[in-house]
C-alpha cells in the first residue's frame, strides 16, 4: 500500500520543498485519550491488531498487567500500567494507551532519508509507506516518544497509522471503535481540545488541580491528545515532559538537508551516527520475545 490516495499530503520525508500537495484544506484530526476514565481493558489493543492484520506476539507473564514491555513492530497500541505513589497518602494505578502520537512536527519524518517513506497528511496523520521505507531505522532516534519499531523480517519500520485507511472512508480508528468507556474519541482536533478543556475543568473541580491536556508544543502539538489527572507529571504516565525533535535530527533537516547534492552523504552520515550511538540493528528491540510471531 502506498500513501493513501485522495488524502492531501502536508509533507513527505526527504523531499525537496516539503513534498506537500496542499491543494485542499483539511482540518487536523485527533485521537483523544482520557486516562482518568480508561480502565485498561485492552479492547483497543485487540482491535488494532485485528484491523491491521498484525500477527500475534508471543508474550510471557513477567509480573505486570501490561501486555508487553513496550510497542513492537506488530503491536502498535499498548496500554501501559504504572503504579505511582502520588504523595504522602496518595496512590494511583495510571493506565495510558501508548501509540504513535502523530506529531505536528514529526521527528521521524524529519529523520527519514528515504523520499516519501514517511508522509504527513494534511489532516495531521503521520503514515509510513512501506514500499518506500528502506529499513534504515533512522526514524527511531528521531522520535521523542520511542514509537517506531523496526522489523527485520521485512526490513521495514512499523507504527500506528491512526487507521488512515479507515479515516479516509469516514470511519473512526479501530481502537476508538472498540473502546467501551468512551475514554477514546476521534474527531476534529479543535473540538477535542475543547472537550479536553471541559474534562480538565471537571477534574480540577474534583481536586486534581494540575489536571491538563497533554499536547506538547515542542513537537508542534500532537494528533493524539491525552487528558492527565496529574498534568504536572506526564512522566508518571510514561510521557516525556517536554518532548522535542532531537537536535541532531533537526539540525540535519534544517541545515544539511536542503542542500540537495549532499543529501545522500547526509543519509550515510546519519546512518553512521546512529550506528555509533545505538550499535548494530537488533531484530528485537524490546522484550525478550517481543516481535516474534506465534
Amino acid at each position: 500500500m502506498g500513501a493513501i490516495q485522495g488524502f492531501e499530503i502536508r509533507r513527505s520525508s526527504a523531499a525537496l520543498r516539503g513534498g506537500g500537495t496542499m491543494l485542499r484544506q483539511q482540518p487536523t484530526v485527533a485521537k483523544y485519550i482520557d486516562t482518568s476514565i480508561c480502565i485498561g481493558c485492552k479492547a483497543c489493543e485487540v482491535a488494532c491488531q485485528e484491523w491491521n492484520d498484525l500477527p500475534l506476539v508471543k508474550t510471557e507473564q513477567v509480573g505486570t498487567y501490561q501486555t508487553m514491555p513496550s510497542l513492537a513492530p506488530n503491536f502498535w497500541n499498548l496500554i501501559q500500567f504504572r503504579e505511582i505513589d502520588t504523595g504522602p497518602h496518595g496512590f494511583a494505578w495510571l493506565l495510558r494507551k501508548d501509540q504513535c502520537m502523530h506529531c505536528a512536527d514529526p521527528g521521524c519524518l524529519a529523520a527519514c532519508p528515504a523520499p516519501g517513506a514517511i508522509v504527513q497528511y494534511q489532516n495531521g496523520i503521520v503514515d509510513v509507506d512501506p514500499e518506500k521505507c528502506i529499513g534504515c531505522g533512522l526514524c527511531e532516534p528521531g522520535c521523542p516518544f520511542d514509537v517506531p519499531r523496526y522489523t527485520a523480517r521485512d526490513n521495514k519500520m512499523a507504527k500506528c497509522t491512526l487507521c488512515v485507511d479507515r479515516v479516509t472512508v469516514g470511519l473512526e480508528p479501530a481502537c476508538i471503535k472498540a473502546c467501551p468507556t468512551g475514554c477514546l474519541q476521534f474527531g476534529d482536533k479543535s473540538s477535542l481540545l475543547a472537550l479536553g478543556a471541559h474534562r480538565v475543568k471537571q477534574l480540577q473541580d474534583d481536586g486534581f488541580a494540575s489536571a491538563a491536556v497533554y499536547d506538547p508544543p515542542g513537537v508542534g502539538g500532537t494528533s493524539v491528545i491525552t487528558v492527565l489527572k496529574h498534568g504536572d507529571h506526564p512522566e508518571w504516565y510514561g510521557l516525556p515532559k517536554d518532548p522535542s525533535v532531537p537536535t541532531t535530527v533537526s539540525l540535519w533537516k534544517r541545515v544539511l538537508h536542503p542542500i540537495g547534492f549532499v543529501a545522500m552523504a547526509a543519509a550515510i552520515f546519519g546512518a553512521i551516527g546512529h550506528f555509533m550511538a545505538f550499535g548494530p540493528k537488533k531484530p528485537v528491540d524490546t522484550a525478550k520475545d517481543a516481535g516474534k510471531e506465534v
Binding site: 485487540v46 508474550t59 507473564q61 501486555t67
Partner: peptide, 12 residues
C-alpha cells in the same frame, strides 16, 4: 484463544 493469551499469557 491465543489472541487473548497474548494479552494475559499466564497464571500469576
Amino acid at each position: 484463544t491465543n489472541i487473548l493469551n497474548q494479552l494475559q499469557p499466564g497464571f500469576f
